[in-house]
Each structure stands twice: as structure tokens, then as C-alpha cells.
Simulated assay, not measured.
Amino acid sequence: MKIKLDQMTQKDKDDRLQRFLSASEQQLFPQEDIAIYLTCSTHTLQRLRCTGGGIPYSKIGRSVVYKKSDVLKYQQNQTIMNTAQLAS
């Protein structure tokens, strides 16, 4: 059964974050775990899937999963080195 972010305890979130951090780069994770890692909402991830430019994902049945290596690569590509980069 899938648990929504707002229904998780802080311990649940911490456990999921630790599991993500210690996993291999090929491991797949549900959008809730990725939202915890990126400190965003699942709605933000859904919006990025619809509009493009987000993290590559796979659908398994109705479930959306992300590969850890894709999440890390996306995060690295979002890194801003200075405010001049924001204008481009």
C-alpha cells in the first residue's frame, strides 16, 4: 500500500531517505522517496513529468519509479554556480 508524504511520520521519511542514500545507483524508487530526497512535493514531480525537463522515469503498472542515478544526474544538472547563470 502506498503512503502519501503528508501521512508519513518524520521517522518514515528519514528511513526512506537513508535507504535512498545507501542504495546502488541502479535501484528504483517511488516518487515519494524522490520527493523526500529532493525536498519537493510529489505534485512537483508530476508536473515535471507532464511538462518535460524533469527526471527520466519508468511506469510499472500505475506506479512511477525513478532510477537513483537519474535522480543524481538531474540534481547535478540543476546546480547553479552563480546568479549570472539564472539569466540564461
Rank of each mutant, 00 (worst) to 15 (best):
G54F: 04
Q46I: 00
I60K: 14
R62L: 03
L21T: 11
I3L: 14
L21K: 15
D12C: 03
C50K: 15
L45V: 08
K4T: 12
G52P: 05
L48M: 14
T9Q: 01
T79H: 07
M81C: 01
L38I: 14
G61Q: 04
Q31T: 14
Q78R: 15
G52K: 03
L38C: 13
R62D: 00
K13N: 01
L21N: 13
T42L: 03
D6A: 10
C40Q: 10
A35S: 13
K73C: 08
I60W: 02
L21S: 05
L28I: 08
V71W: 04
S41D: 06
Q27G: 00
T79W: 00
K67H: 00
Q31F: 00
T51K: 13
D70S: 14
T39S: 12
M1I: 11
K59F: 00
Y57L: 05
A35T: 10
S88Y: 06
Y74W: 15
Q75N: 13
K4R: 14
S24I: 09
Y74M: 03
V71L: 08
Y74L: 03
L86I: 15
L28P: 05
T51R: 11
Q10S: 10
K59N: 13
K68H: 09
M8F: 05
Q46M: 04
G53V: 03
S41Q: 07
G52F: 02
R62V: 04
V64P: 04
F29E: 07
S88L: 08
D6T: 14
Y57T: 04
Y66W: 09
S58A: 12
V71S: 09
R19F: 03
I36W: 10
Q26R: 14
Q76A: 15
E25P: 05
L38R: 15
P56K: 06
E25D: 15
I36M: 07
D12P: 02
R49N: 08
L5T: 15
S22W: 02
L21W: 01
V64G: 02
Q10M: 11
Q46H: 06
R19Y: 03
P56S: 06
Q75W: 09
I60F: 08
P30I: 07
T79F: 09
T51P: 01
V71Y: 04
G61K: 05
R62P: 01
G53L: 01
N82M: 01
E32M: 00
G61T: 03
M81T: 13
R16E: 05
A23S: 15
Q46T: 11
C40S: 12
A84S: 09
L45N: 03
L72R: 12
A35F: 02
T42I: 07
D14Y: 01
R49V: 03
C40H: 04
E25M: 14
